[in-house]
Design a protein around this nucleic acid. Structure first.
Lengths: 157, 157
DNA sequence: AAGAAATACTCAGTGCCCTGACTAATCGGG
DNA sequence: CCCGATTAGTCAGGGCACTGAGTATTTCTT
């Protein structure tokens, strides 16, 4: 009766979009390296020697998640992690040769995948799509913290 | 050098969109019930007595994930799970009174949240946004399986 | 009626994602 | 110089999401 149509819920659509992407990535790009892992490799190609926190900032991952992703990439031998001698809190990250090689290979495949992913949209629609996606995300990002916390669902006794 | 701009990658944008939504949901809707959990409640308001698999289908979750989500909702006392006497493989799901109550409360909050989430877009843009999101997801969904598996990154010796 | 195939669900394993609490190191003022 | 605040990273805990393997039940086929 009071049920709602989920297709009018942006959150639901966002989740579906990500699932769709995950699926395509798995079949067209790699079953070993994930999309967030590629994002990290990419950030380190652009700025070698970055520390963990900064990489997380570039790719949009919090301190805990970025630590996990980096540890996995380290285990796979795609990057090295060394203490910063200037600031003993930091770890400096740098791709290994293998890391660079994998990044290069994935860059090509990713481009192909993006084409397939966006194929249902015309060129103009693709531009609009990026724009809308970015604007909504940026706006929500800007809303961090300031709001008062939600009232709990159940009144605790 | 060969680094790519992530803002041109729909997968990255999809992930950011979901993160943004997660954040907003947490502050505006509930810290206890998640968006996928709400989707399940909603499906069961629409069709009480559905089995697990069908609920998963409605909300877009695979068998394993839907099992976890349902088990959590069960632990919270929001739904009941009983063996189908007609078909001993199935579990039939039904919301408890508390489940219905929570769904009603969240429906209101979710509507408010959606408004805030979409506020950066004009009414017309919102329509376009939904349309593009849906078309891309549907298309990728349709691409399931058929493709040959990706070649592995490293040639195993 | 018996065996094969399909179906609903569970379980183990991997990975992403967040929060909150903690440790270690650095930095800033007095 | 020292103490408090800030900052980088870790760790535990909860939840989402998938795959692949396994169990039980039903259904299809012969």
């Amino acid at each position: 009766m009071a049920a709602v149509d989920l297709s009018a819920h942006p959150g639901h659509l966002a989740r579906r979009l990500q699932q769709a992407h995950y699926l395509l990535w798995n079949t067209m790009v790699s079953e070993e390296i994930t999309s967030p892992q590629f994002a990290v490799l990419n950030a380190l190609v652009a700025e070698p020697g970055l520390d963990q926190r900064s990489v997380g900032e570039r790719v949009g991952l919090d301190r805990s998640t970025i630590a996990e992703v980096i540890s996995r990439l380290g285990r796979r031998g795609l990057l090295d992690k060394v203490r910063d001698t200037q600031d003993g809190r930091r770890f400096l990250l740098r791709l290994t040769d293998e890391g660079v090689r994998v990044h290069r290979k994935l860059t090509v495949r990713t481009a192909r995948m993006n084409q397939v992913f966006l194929a249902p949209l015309s060129g103009e629609e693709q531009t609009v799509f990026f724009d809308l996606l970015q604007r909504v995300s940026d706006a929500a990002e800007g809303l961090r913290n300031p709001g008062a916390p939600v009232a709990p669902l159940v009144t605790q006794r």
